[in-house]
Design a protein around this nucleic acid. Sequence first.
DNA 1: ATAATTTGACCCCCG
DNA 2: TCGGGGGTCAAATTA
Length: 344
Amino acid sequence: MLPIEGQRHLKSRCIMNLEYSAQSTREKSCPNGLRIEAPGFTRHVIEVDPCYHGLIERSTRYKEEQVYFRALSQRKFGKKFQTPKILPSPSTGSFSLKNLSSNIQNHEQSIEKEQKSFTDFSFQQPSNHQTEQLWNHQKPREQDEKTFVQSEHPSQFLTFSPEISTITTDSNSQMQSSQLGYAGSNINFENQSSQIKTDDGYRWRKYGKKQGKGKNVRSYYMCVSPNCTARKRIETNLDGQITKIAYKGSHNHPKFQSTRISSASNHLQMAQASSNHEFDKFYGSHGSRQFDSFATLENSSIYDDLDRSSSGRLKYDAMPDSKNGFISDGSYGSSGGDEPISIY
DNA sequence: ATAATTTGACCCCCG
DNA sequence: TCGGGGGTCAAATTA
Ligand SMILES: [Zn+2]
């Protein structure tokens, strides 16, 4: 699944290795540059070197300890144009990764991973005071530490002083950076999915992900059944372990999981799945163990209308005892959320 | 071609 | 109004 070198897709991305951004949560573009939101941090603004004005419009999320910035925005240039050849830099030209390796020191790992080139922006640190605190602790797990050392320049303002690069990454790049990284860190998606069952008899499609402040990541799923508006939110900690699961809305159909790959493990569901035809029994019997919390949800008329007025776009009527519309499943030890919870 | 995931961009609330 | 957050959309990618 991971792309291999020389694979078809070539992407160009302008990647900057910012040490400090390791734990940034997300970024937003702002008039003066890029705003980086990091848990615990006060906002950071990255000033963009003039030569990049208009070229760097937004950043992407960080992956591991890095933050990738994309230089051109599709919006600006049209979607079709989406593969920005990162312009040969105004100032410098493209470079190969070696150069940057020079600058960016500690990330050998990362570097090697990205054998492609990426841009390294050196940053200065005008004022950095409190910032660092964040850096120190927070480093999640082992891999990170070695991988990165972002000690020296935690800065609040970064300035790109680009040596730009032309990156031509082929897909492997991404894999290296992101996936590898994760893989390296003990848990990777697959594992977790396998070891921790979150299967509740429904099929969900992921539609969003967000890193919350601190150490949890929330993944949002919606039921794949047509017209079903049920949603599920899974929170995981840094290690990828699920710490909480919450539901929102109710299903308008029986459980169905037929499409599940008949992996040995899902027998029970299969059974139920097969009976999609009877809607009736669904209502009566579905109460499979822990997810009964659903029951509570169901009766509520949450979904009557989806007007849009609050979060995001759809609005659901406030549910009693629900947070943001999601009702956490009690059985998941909704304990603060740091502790991995065992499922099943 | 189809289905699912990824993820930057947005929306909305709140202080 | 900005900025911190939570949640969602949807085009692009992948599978
Ligand atoms: Zn459903």
